[in-house]
Computed example of a mutant assay.
Amino acid sequence: MEDQEHVTLIKVSTNASQYFVDSYFAALNGRQNTIASFYMPPASMPGGSLPSISFNGTQIPTAAEMQTMFEQQIPQPHYEVQCYDCHVVNPNYISEGTQARPAKTGKNMTILVAVSGYVKYGNPKEAQPRAFSESFLLVPNPAAAAGQQRMKNVKEWLIQTQTFRIVV
Rank of each mutant, 00 (worst) to 15 (best):
G106L: 00
Y93T: 06
A114S: 15
P61D: 10
F20I: 05
I111V: 04
Q99K: 11
S54K: 09
S54F: 12
K120S: 12
D85G: 13
V81E: 04
A27D: 03
M66P: 02
C83T: 14
M109Y: 07
N29S: 09
Q148H: 12
F70P: 09
T105A: 00
P42N: 10
Q73L: 14
L137T: 08
P75W: 02
T8S: 11
D85N: 13
G117F: 06
A144W: 05
W157H: 06
A64D: 07
A103E: 09
Q82G: 13
K11S: 15
A127W: 06
G117E: 00
Y79K: 11
V115R: 02
Q162W: 10
V12P: 02
R150C: 11
V7M: 14
Q73G: 02
Y24S: 07
I166C: 03
G106T: 05
P129W: 08
G30W: 07
P91F: 04
V154Y: 00
Q32Y: 02
I74S: 06
P124C: 09
G147E: 06
V89F: 06
A146P: 05
Q148N: 10
I159G: 04
A64N: 12
V119N: 05
M151E: 13
I111H: 12
G117S: 07
G106Q: 01
M40W: 04
Q149G: 03
S133W: 03
A100C: 08
V7W: 12
G30F: 07
V81P: 04
P61S: 04
M1I: 10
A64I: 08
D3H: 14
Q99M: 13
V167W: 01
Q18S: 13
C83N: 15
G117W: 04
N56P: 00
Q128E: 15
I159P: 03
L112P: 00
I60D: 01
S133K: 10
A63R: 00
F70Q: 10
V119K: 08
